[in-house]
Simulated scan of single mutants.
Amino acid sequence: MSYTGEVTPGGPTDVRELTRLTITKVAVDEKMSNNCYLLRCRESGAQVLIDAAASPETLLPLIGDGGLDRVVTTHQHWDHHRALADVVRETKAVVVAGEPDADAITEQTGVSVDQRVGDGDTVAVGACDLEVIRITGHTPGSICLLYRDPDGHPHLFTGDSLFPGGVGNTFGDADAFATLIDDVETKLFGALPDDTWFYPGHGNDSQLGVERPHLAEWRERGW
């Protein structure tokens, strides 16, 4: 079966096999339906988890006996790190988060952030690298993670900064929305090609080319 990115809490994972990287997507928590992504380097077997959102009883068996090098939290909101303490306790993984959100994540979870990242930093998945792109607005330190597949198109993990149909919620804060839409337009749409496949923190995936025609509409709509 080909990858679709359509997952539901309690349902099966969806797996995308790239030449050098395997992406496993799983949804957790029926109320919030958060997406978690387990990335595995096919050369070394090294694994990185993006957002230990909830349900360690789902995530830990998915990680399996191969161990976990790092767990990345895309932003400080509570629904994206409820399983962080359990996952780190069991795997001893290095904890990664955006610099401006790191203290809040520690306050909420009791877990220290080992690697505080920002624009231009990289997160290793064995022989593969994820580029960190800071997107301010949904939270001060939200990050996206970009994998430039040398054998295909880019893959972008956007947390809650970008979804099919719009940017993340800024809860009525006009200044935060302006920053968010500017960052998304400049750092993502302005820098990456249309065939970039992106994986959000909730719901289905999309491609930048599908969403690009709606940027002006999103800016006008606000949030």
Rank of each mutant, 00 (worst) to 15 (best):
His214Cys: 04
Trp218Ile: 09
Thr58Gly: 02
Ile23Val: 15
Val87Trp: 02
Cys144Asp: 09
Glu6Ser: 11
Gly45Asn: 11
Lys92Cys: 04
Val15Glu: 06
Asp29Gly: 05
Glu211Gln: 14
Lys25Ile: 03
Gln47His: 07
Glu211Ala: 07
Ser44Tyr: 05
Leu162Gly: 00
Arg116Val: 01
Ile105Ser: 03
Val15Met: 02
Pro213Trp: 03
Trp218Asn: 10
Val87Asp: 03
Leu60Phe: 09
Val94Asn: 01
Leu130Asn: 00
Gly152Ala: 14
Pro9Cys: 08
Pro140Met: 08
Gln207Thr: 15
Leu130Gly: 01
Thr13Gly: 06
Phe171Thr: 05
Gly141Ala: 13
Phe163Arg: 02
Val26Ile: 15
Asp51Arg: 07
Gly141Tyr: 04
Glu43Phe: 09
Arg148Asn: 14
Gly159Tyr: 01
Val123Thr: 04
Val88Gly: 01
Ser33Asp: 12
Val28Glu: 00
Arg40Leu: 05
Glu185Asp: 15
Glu6Leu: 14
Arg42Glu: 09
Gln115Trp: 06
Gln47Pro: 13
Gly190Arg: 08
Glu99Gln: 13
Thr91Ile: 09
Arg219Val: 13
Gly141Asn: 08
Trp218Pro: 08
Asp182Lys: 06
Ser206Ala: 15
Leu192Lys: 01
Asn35Lys: 12
Val15Gly: 01
Glu211Trp: 05
Thr106Asp: 02
Ala46Phe: 04
Gly166His: 10
Thr109Pro: 01
Ile105Val: 13
Gly110Tyr: 10
Pro61Gln: 04
Asp69Thr: 11
Leu49Asn: 05
Thr158Arg: 07
Thr24Asn: 11
Thr24His: 04
Thr73Ala: 05
Glu99Asp: 12
Arg221Ser: 14
Asp175Ala: 15
Ser112Cys: 07
Leu21Pro: 00
Ala216Cys: 03
Asn35Ser: 06
Glu6Cys: 03
Tyr147Ser: 01
Trp197Glu: 14
Val117His: 02
Gly98Ile: 11
Gly11Lys: 11
Thr8Leu: 10
Tyr3Met: 07
Asp129Lys: 12
His77Glu: 15
Leu18His: 06
Ala104Pro: 00
Pro200Asn: 09
Val48Asp: 05
Lys187Arg: 15
Thr158Phe: 10
Val111Thr: 11
Ile181Met: 10
Asp149Ile: 14
Asp205Phe: 03
Gly159Ile: 02
Asp151Thr: 12
Phe157Lys: 02
